[in-house]
Nucleic acid binder design. Structure first.
Length: 239
DNA sequence: AACTCTCTCAACCGCCTTAGG
DNA sequence: ACCTAAGGCGGTTGAGAGAGT
């Protein structure tokens, strides 16, 4: 049995009160970040150290940028997600003032659905849609149809059960997919004129010489990532 | 007005990684 | 080299707000 990270008894859980926030802010202002394990006791908080850390990082830190994501931030998230996957902390690291939790939530509640609606698989950023062959009997087929059942793979790739909206999309997708040919034999989606015209602010990806490695535990440098971004075939959105 | 459904996001959980002895 | 504690991360949950009926 793994030891719990802190004593469960006597610790508060759930939403933080103003007083708790203030105690945490005051303590960190005086002593700085770190030593999360011992912080709650020292600060007079009945909270788990991890909870304090999370509260500070995700909410109380003075440099946090709150409010809606801007268009360029959203585009950057999509682009970085295409390359890094669900490495939220890495992605958030490229968005000043944003936290990994915020980016993750925004991805799950907004971007993911948006991509699905656009016929893009949010897991691999590939287009799901193909143009159905002209067929008078199937004129009503949605153009957002998927190929090779890849839309249903979206959910196969995630542990979370389908929510109702996704369910509907998935249902429509598989319905449509059933009347369409496999991507490999049909016209390639790459032939589509999918100029979605989302301009990407290139400067935000500029990489300085000698920049530290971006991915923990790997040899991938920021420059390599930038190169990969340029060659990534899945990033149709930003071509 | 009351109820139900859906969505958002703060917070928690547990695993993995890292640092220090 | 190994062990342990602490930090960090991504996945998941659930409360609350807002929309719909």
């Amino acid at each position: 049995m793994r030891k719990p990270c802190c004593e469960k008894e006597g610790t508060n859980k759930g939403a933080w009160s103003k007083q708790e926030d203030q105690k945490l802010i005051d303590y960190i202002k005086t002593h700085g970040e770190g030593c999360w394990r011992s912080l709650p006791k020292a600060a007079g908080l009945h909270r788990c150290g991890k909870s304090c850390r999370l509260r500070w990082i995700n909410y109380l830190r003075p440099d946090i940028k709150r409010g809606n994501f801007e268009q360029d931030e959203e585009e950057l998230i999509i682009k970085l997600h295409a390359l890094l996957g669900n490495r939220w902390s890495l992605i958030a690291g490229r968005l000043p003032g944003r936290t990994d939790n915020e980016v993750k939530n925004y991805w799950n509640s907004h971007i993911r659905k948006k991509l699905i609606k656009m016929g893009i698989d949010p897991n691999n950023h590939r287009l799901n849609q193909i143009i159905p062959r002209p067929n008078p009997q199937n004129d009503s087929v949605s153009p957002a149809a998927t190929s090779s059942g890849s839309m249903s793979n979206i959910n196969a790739c995630t542990k979370t059960p389908l929510k109702s909206s996704d369910d509907q999309i998935d249902h429509r997708a598989s319905e449509a997919a059933s009347v369409l040919e496999d991507e490999t034999s049909g016209p390639s989606s790459r032939d589509l004129n999918l100029d979605l015209t989302i301009a990407f602010p290139e400067p935000s990806l500029q990489v300085e010489e000698g920049m530290p490695k971006l991915i923990k535990g790997s040899n991938t440098t920021a420059r390599e990532i930038e190169t990969n971004l340029q060659h990534l075939p899945t990033l149709v959105l930003f071509r």
